[in-house]
Nucleic acid binder design. Structure first.
Lengths: 237, 237
DNA sequence: TGTAGAATGTGAGTCTGCCTCACGTTTGTC
DNA sequence: GACAAACGTGAGGCAGACTCACATTCTACA
């Protein structure tokens, strides 16, 4: 007999590659590439306005001044279009991270790095409505969860590296988990802060900084030139 | 001219109350009430199996052994059906909280309360697939975000109360924010832990406890009978 | 117990939105 | 300039949310 559910849920994915990876025409001519970019821009704009679910493929096509047919020439389905947006922001967030974690950055106390990092990312989220839209909708489906988490994973991996030097007491496995926790906390809290409105947002961001700082404190090596106050002796299990 | 987006996005909501609040028949006869419950049970089951998006109203109707017509007698739309699930779990989580925060609970160090609380909630999430499904899908839409956050808000409000006694250094506004941060961190991390699989989940949960504990440490009054080790003197900006 | 009418149940049908495909248009090449 | 390959198009297929006219069951009251 089997549950009717399975039967119904399947056709959602249009007989294509499982996670809507690619599997579509790769633009070869310049005209085509432009169109592709226009579609992605339009998708960003529409999603930013109404969210992922309410964003119709027709609206995106119209906004991109093209036809749905062209949209589906490049993307196997709506989800894939959304996923194609992620690499764009991945690059931007990578750049953000690079601008933060420079050789000079290690001369200042790690606490201020944490604070600057959170501020930077919060700002980025505010300034880039497209990114925010993508970010907020990232939990939309199981597929997206996997794909969208890439940004977080990427971040975590990088953070892991810097932890290697600043928290030598942790082994590789621990570093990985700690980095994940930090990234996920910041990620979640920035979303919450945005949702709670401009009233609470600054307070929430401030508290997030404290939370992360206090969490990491126990793992970090005390900085030589730290501006006093930091609790150096700490037995902690 | 106006963006085509708005025009398209509207009919998504079926000309009913904005956030799918109620606006539908309230079951008067026992037969009806049973059917209502059956539909909710079916919705839970189907959502748990395939997620919110892939859950079709027909599948839910079939599972509840009724017709779509009946489903739409009680719920103005699919989202409302989902929202109706929340009060069910709100009650359960309330009970969970009550079992945790008892008068006796205050005789033990707050750290163990945090740990027990997180464990309890993690367990609850594991044991109740329906709850997990609802919880994981809670970010599905903007509407749900608001409604779904109710559980978190409820939790935060309660936590706020207990903070009143254990963190008297905070004023009301600060307490509110601190409680929100704690609840959101735990909530987000439990979701992440579930997603990352049984491999990493225990470690993530363990680190979440540490994060929350260390965050709160600075605010809490040191317990008289604390099992040593906790850093009592703490200037912290 | 019979019956009016309210409450409830039903599913074929409408509508919206994702996606396909057969055909028309542009570009590149010789 | 003519052929092929790449590209563009939108009417239409199809799934799934939701409606509505009608059928069935219940309740109240004589």
């Amino acid at each position: 007999m089997s549950h009717p559910v399975a039967k119904r849920a399947e056709p959602k994915l249009p007989t294509r590659s499982p996670a809507g990876g690619e599997g579509r025409a790769v633009p070869a001519q310049a005209r085509s590439r432009e169109r592709y970019e226009r579609i992605l821009d339009a998708a960003t704009a529409v999603i930013a306005e109404v969210g992922y679910e309410a964003a119709t493929t027709e609206a995106i096509a119209e906004r991109a001044e093209t036809s749905i047919g062209s949209v589906y020439r490049f993307f196997p389905n709506k989800l894939a279009m959304f996923q194609a947006l992620i690499p764009r922001y991945l690059d931007k967030t990578r750049a953000l991270f690079d601008s933060l974690v420079t050789p000079e950055a290690f001369t200042q106390p790690w606490q201020s790095l944490v604070e600057r990092g959170i501020d930077l990312f919060a700002d980025f989220q505010l300034k880039e409505p497209g990114f925010r839209a993508v970010w907020m909708s990232i939990k939309v489906t199981d597929q997206l969860l996997v794909e969208g988490d890439e940004v977080n994973q990427e971040f975590a991996r990088r953070l892991e590296l810097t932890l290697q030097f600043q928290a030598p007491s942790l082994d590789a496995a621990q570093r990985r988990v700690v980095a994940m926790v930090v990234v996920e906390i910041v990620s979640a809290m920035l979303v919450v802060a945005t949702q709670r409105g401009p009233e609470l947002a600054p307070q929430l961001v401030a508290e997030t900084k404290k939370a992360v700082t206090r969490y990491l404190e126990a793992y970090m090596v005390p900085l030589p030139a730290a501006p006093a106050k930091s609790s150096v002796k700490r037995s902690k299990r």
